[in-house]
């Protein structure tokens, strides 16, 4: 990896292998994600997506291979990686029995934000997400759509250059799902790199580029439009089914 590459790339993965015993969960993955890109990381259940994401977030060690996140090395600079990424899981990670402000204060505190900054962020989020009616409520009382937008905002409270979203839109209504994608677009337009997984194939179309994992390998990686051309498919769903069914 040259310095030049790490300057323009948010994520660089080279020959990443992860084994559990004899089982190869990630089989020589190599790819790079540009800064400011919305990168869709797709694959069937059990294809190895979660394993790879855990490694990219510094939560799990690869068996072999090189990974650089925001220019930092996955073996030597895991703490720096954690400071430079945001992560939102499908289960969210908000505390149900804390209020909105308390959740923001908690996460802001973890990332070492000043009190002043936390106050600013709290006001900003309540305003931006339209949460005025819920400032006294506990998070568990929020409708799912609001919870999801709040979870996303909290995941980027420390303004990281990269954010990982693991199935962020499961279960919400179709209007809320689209509002969520507009939030993603907005952050990408501000220069954030978005690394996202989803089972909604229409959402694959919103990504600048998409990779599709099958049995631990990346079988395809390109712009949605080019993937459709390559596989002679009308939709990303068709591309996915062709690849995943083998």
């Amino acid at each position: 990896m040259t310095n030049n590459q790490t300057n323009t790339k948010a994520v660089v993965v080279k020959d990443l292998v992860k084994k559990f015993g004899d089982f190869v969960a990630n089989d020589h993955l190599s790819f790079a994600v540009d800064k400011g890109e919305i990168f869709g990381f797709l694959g069937a259940n059990g294809a190895g997506k979660t394993t790879a994401i855990k490694i990219l977030c510094g939560l799990s060690h690869p068996t072999s291979g090189d990974v650089k996140i925001a220019g930092y090395d996955i073996y030597k600079q895991r703490d720096l990686i954690k400071k430079n990424i945001g992560y939102m899981s499908q289960k969210f990670s908000l505390y149900d029995d804390l209020s909105i402000a308390e959740n923001i204060r908690f996460y802001g505190g973890i990332y070492g934000l000043s009190r002043k900054k936390i106050k600013e962020k709290t006001e900003e989020y309540i305003e931006k997400l339209g949460l005025q009616a819920y400032t006294k409520s506990m998070v568990k009382e929020l409708p799912l759509g609001f919870k999801q937008k709040l979870a996303f905002s909290v995941a980027i409270v420390h303004d990281p250059p990269i954010v990982f979203l693991d199935e962020p839109t499961g279960g919400v209504d179709p209007i809320t799902r689209r509002q969520f994608w507009e939030l993603i677009y907005k952050e990408a337009a501000n220069g954030k790199t978005i690394f996202v997984t989803t089972h909604y194939m229409d959402e694959a179309e919103y990504c600048d580029r998409v990779s599709i994992m099958v049995d631990g390998r990346i079988e395809a990686l390109d712009e949605p439009k080019k993937l459709k051309e390559t596989y002679g498919a009308q939709s990303m769903e068709e591309v996915f089914i062709q690849l995943a069914r083998g």
């Binding site: 694959g43 069937a44 259940n45 499908q90 499961g170 089972h199 996915f240 089914i241 995943a244 069914r245």
Partner: peptide, 10 residues
Amino acid sequence: TTGVDAVSRK
């Protein structure tokens, strides 16, 4: 089919 991939859903 919630949380299940597009192939298994089909």
